[in-house]
Design a protein around this nucleic acid. Sequence first.
DNA 1: AATTCGGGGAC
DNA 2: GTCCCAGAATT
Length: 341
Amino acid sequence: MDFPANNLLDWYDTQKRDLPWRGEKNPYYIWLSEVILQQTRVEQGWDYYVNFVQAFPTVRDLATAPQDKVLRLWQGLGYYSRARNLQSAAQYIEAHCGGIFPNRYTDLLKLKGVGNYTAAAVASIAFGEAVAAVDGNVYRVLSRFFRVSTAIDSTEGKKQFQHLADKVLDKNRAGDFNQAMMELGATVCLPKKPLCTACPLMSACQGYLHKDFLNFPNKTPKKAVKNRYFHVFVLQADDKIAVTLRQNKDIWHGLYTYPLQELDLENFNAPKLNTLETHGFVLQKTETPKPHLLTHQKLHFVFYFFAGEKIADIFDNMIWKEQKNLKNLPFPRPFLPFLGE
DNA sequence: AATTCGGGGAC
DNA sequence: GTCCCAGAATT
């Protein structure tokens, strides 16, 4: 399987969009455009690029500007650490590179906010270095063309697609080739409705020939958020509080929590507490607090408070700890203040 | 390996 | 609502 790089470049030469940074060779301007366009659509970044070039015509202008002026120009674009890293890198170039923009991939990588993609883009477009710039567009084009199923957000996938992109790269026109791949992904090889009949790679695209291009690219499946429901018992005897040690293979493993019982949704909303009530202790039920969000779990709680000297007698397997030693309970912080009551 | 950082457009 | 965008830094 060989990649028709010439078809792609011919298409790019005649069909490429006219963008503010097209044909630009100044590495500073290329870098500026690439950082602005990180996770950002061309239409959204367009005016920001124009404004930045006008406000800071040179690296030194950017390096010496007051930070709030930089951030103000960035306002509304999002990912604001990009703006801070941008100026930090400009100051680094002034202080440690004699004001000369780094001209190799490995040196560009040293700049804050410049990762694999941006270093490759600047090195290839401004200096003609033969390194493939792999962004979201390139993942899509390559995975469809070669029908590569490896997840693009996995460590293996990133390595594999970088190798593949470097292999198909036209080393005589590295900058144009990288831009052509991205241009194709942005205007033809679209995520939902690719315009295959207008694609210069159509006749050799494996995804098109197998009619399964929409199965690519592949991503690691993201786990669904699971709802879990707990009754939480705050048992207080004298100045001691009952806790239990969490077992492994679940949240808070190895940590102490209040005794709690996990229920399904139905029982969570209609609790049965006959056993506890017959012992004559006063039960105080809180309102259901706001759910606590973990990475892939949403935890719902109802808290019950008991107090009484003999309460320790009716519970087994509890560890009683001094109340003052319970500052590090692995519970949602908003609930901890109840401990002091 | 998983998470965070953002605003916006397409569907 | 979901997905994606010319990704990188942090944990």
